[in-house]
Amino acid sequence: MIELLDVHKRFVENVVLDGVSLEVKDGETVALLGPSGVGKSVTLKMINGLLRPDAGDVIVDGLHVPQLGRKELATLRGKIGYVFQYGALFDSMSVAENIRLGITDETCYNDEKFCENRIQECLRLVNLAPDVAAKLPAELSGGMKKRVGIARAIAGQPKYLLYDEPTSGLDPVNADVIDGLVERLRDELGVTSVVVSHDVRGSFRVADRVALLWQAKIRAVGPPDEILASKDPAVLQFLERDLEMTLIQSESQEGREARGRNV
């Protein structure tokens, strides 16, 4: 289970999180929604100890993350897969080497045969062809980079998966593919997931519960239907803004398809 208890965080004078509390139960997928720059990624980085809260506590798997030492934190991180917004692939390494780094158990990491099998298994799970393993990140498209990032995150068979804007920068078709992948990994691997996003449609598709982060606080938490029915002005404002964006995207997609037909 993941628990955030009254978490506060500020950068110089900018208050990013002001008493945020959230609970993610085992096997559950929670989408953390909110406009850009509201502190969603900061929250995610606190869960795996990349950032420390100024006040409050973060508990993962029964461990108080801010109080963990270097070795304990490394052990905990072995149980948490983290998918970065832009993939954060090591550009001097091949896809296979990137995924191999995700194998956090040292005995397994040093076993060539195991690694080879695990890399192929991870590529299959994220719908990538086996020959992608030999490529460098620079040779991949944006969507493929995200999928390799997910493959690296699941290579160590984590108990928790944290997704930082998994669909940002992707066209609607690729965003759907990634959303489908998040659902599939949840069902096949049974991991507890936190998905940070500002894409309402995708988040409502993959999440068991949705939390809206608004002006440094959690404004609403609940199942997608409950959030959609909410009369809270902040929730309505956020949902309307996203709806406009979705309409613009679908119109431009239809336009591209129409131009394609004419050509």
């Binding site: 980085k45 795996n48 990349l50 270097r70 934190l73 490394a74 052990t75 905990l76 991180r77 072995g78 948490i80 983290y82 970065f84 917004q85 832009y86 954060a88 692939l89 090591f90 550009d91 780094l101 995700g102 956090t104 690296r152 160590g156």
Partner: peptide
């Protein structure tokens, strides 16, 4: 570049120093 493209964070998040 590794820092601003979050590659260093990625390394840490994989439990590696």
């Amino acid at each position: 570049t590794m820092r601003v493209t979050e590659q260093i964070d990625a390394l840490e998040s994989l439990g590696r120093s």
